[in-house]
């Protein structure tokens, strides 16, 4: 179980790294995608597609951003959507399957 969890973390970080062209070593769990890593909405779409592809899961519209809370402003989402939040989201999705 621990190994699977670590694999998810590694893979998600690699996906984010590839998409945003940031060295894996520079991506920390607490990094906020939109604020610290300079991601844009199109990047999040790219990341979502790659996650779907790599893990064989389907992610609905806004599901990743809504995982940090519903009815939030863009600014609030920007503050809350971290790498670890995305990792946790993917783990939950895999567990639900």
């Amino acid at each position: 179980m621990e190994a699977v969890s670590e694999k998810v973390e590694t893979t998600v970080t690699e996906i984010i790294s590839r998409s945003l062209r940031i060295d894996v070593g520079k991506i920390v769990a607490q990094a906020r995608l939109f604020v610290d890593l300079d991601a844009e909405s199109l990047d999040l779409l790219d990341i979502r597609y790659e996650i779907e592809n790599k893990f064989g899961i389907k992610i609905s519209d806004n599901e990743i951003t809504e995982s940090v809370g519903r009815n939030l402003t863009q600014k609030e989402i920007g503050e809350l959507l971290t790498v670890e939040r995305v990792v946790s989201f993917v783990k939950d999705k895999i567990n639900q399957q």
């Binding site: 590839r18 998409s19 945003l20 062209r21 844009e40 199109l42 990047d43 779409l45 790219d46 597609y49």
Partner: peptide, 19 residues
């Protein structure tokens, strides 16, 4: 179709690929 409304000078490689 998808798009990113900004100058070409700011398009990232992953965005280019996706679009």
């Amino acid at each position: 179709a998808i798009n990113s409304f900004k100058p070409l000078t700011r398009i990232k490689p992953n965005q280019w690929d996706l679009i």
